[in-house]
Amino acid sequence: MRVAFILSEIGSGIRRNLSMVTSVILVTFISLTFVGAAGLFQLQINQMKGYWYDRVQVTIYLCVDNSSEASCAAGPVTEDQRAAIEARLESDQFAPYVDTVTHETQEEALVHFRDQFANSPIVDSVTAEQLPESFRVSLVDAEKYEVIDEAFSSEPGVDAVSDQRDFLEAIFRYMNWASVVALAIAGIMTFCAILLIATTIRLSAFSRRRETGIMRLVGASKAIIQLPFILEGVIAAVIGAVLASATLWGASRFLIDGWLVNTFPQTAFISSQQVLLLVPVLILLGALLAGISSLLTLRRYVKV
């Protein structure tokens, strides 16, 4: 009986207040979509970190004819220098850090270059002599890049030591920024949602003040009086959360599964399955948002 009663009260509350309830749905929808987008950016960053950091290599570029570095003043790397570098890389001193070492000749570098820039016209103008030969060093622990950098960057015959992480971290920085921006928008929209829910509950409480007044007089419990209002807000917010989840899922299907994965096959992307992990979080967040803001409003506007 009580359940049926509360449900019918919620129904009449929503009917009377339809436009406000709709705006609550829309605002929570937008705010939670941005919350979810920020979450997806973070998931993607973690995914890429996990994927790339395992594959990160340190590249020791050796001097060529046209190297401009001071360490290359003596001209291109000599046979002896190359042998010394290789010997040092494979020595016991670096054994704890170095996993594997491969040598890439200028011809091999040209092949890689042509692969990488297959669609670009500069391919035809580049010759093997312009590309440096290098040692590709994969590390036991990618964080220990500094050790190799310090040990080899001033070695004779070495042009430069570069770590792919520099490049990756720039990407991650941008993605982090994007997620911060999404979170900021989410914050503002959430604030709007809270205010709007509070206003909606106030209006609803005002339009039902006769009922609540009578409920108090005949001894209805606080829960029976307040629950319909709280649930009204919570239901609206949960609908907003469901819409946000559906939007994020649809966007990830369309953008990631449908486009990014095919366009950048080398990159690890989050799957739309992972988006589903966000759904319970968003729904819970929406429910909490509405529950707490309506509770606070009710304490002021519905006397019990």
């Binding site: 009986m1 009580r2 009663f5 009922e211 009578i214 409920m215 005949v218 419990s221 029976i224």
Partner: peptide
């Protein structure tokens, strides 16, 4: 009936 519903009386 409202007075009875809100204190949980059965239908």
């Amino acid at each position: 009936a409202f007075a009875m519903q809100v204190i949980g009386r059965s239908r």
